[in-house]
Design a protein around this nucleic acid. Structure first.
Lengths: 102, 102
DNA sequence: CATCTATTTGGCGAAATAGCCAAATAAAGC
DNA sequence: GCTTTATTTGGCTATTTCGCCAAATAGATG
């Protein structure tokens, strides 16, 4: 059966959660291990509130988990399949743009 | 080395090209084989110009190839790794949203 | 050449997204 | 309990994205 509208939207939300340069950078960095918001703020170089909103969006899409320890909140990837995911993205990105059709 | 800004943007563009319900539906359908624009228009159920713009965006991101035969233009996936990609997305989407952190 | 068909392009208004600031919250330590 | 530190939330503006319509383009066919 064709995916329901809701299912399509949920999947699109997952993908959208990774389809932004800052969020992609965050995801790539988290492949090496969890990080707290202030570390990610330094990494991304944006306002902490902006980073926090990116993280919330990614968490709500199901891409990230988080855990509070002491004063910090540590974010981590929800799934280790992101490696393959990003490898595929790289292959496609390297394919280069086809600017015209025929 | 950390991915350059340009590289991040290119990859984000690839991901964004899949991060929309209609475009995701298109990509999933193309896994079964190429389709022309008017077929995809029926599939998506939007204006042909809207579908065409989705397709152009996906092609420019490097996700789709296209080929003209007769009056029709046939679109196809640029990479067969999309299967794994979507499997990963499914796993993440099924994980369910974590609405609160701790 | 005139016409028909498939597709793309331009333009516009509506909706969603991004990023900053300031304020609110929550837990830790004195 | 007050202060400090880490993070989130609310609000605002600017930018981007979406989807329709109408017009333009490109071949195919008569």
């Amino acid at each position: 059966m064709p995916a329901t509208k809701k299912k399509l939207e949920d999947r699109a939300a997952v993908i959208k959660a990774l389809g932004h340069p800052s969020r992609l950078l965050i995801a790539e960095s988290l492949m090496k291990g969890e990080m707290c918001v202030c570390d990610l703020k330094d990494l991304v170089g944006a306002d902490m509130s902006t980073v926090s909103k990116h993280l919330t969006l990614m968490r709500e899409a199901g891409v990230l988990n988080c855990e509070k320890r002491g004063l910090n909140i540590y974010y981590s990837l929800a799934c280790d399949c992101l490696g393959d995911f990003l490898r595929c993205v790289d292959r496609l990105a390297c394919g280069g743009k086809k600017t015209t059709c025929c």
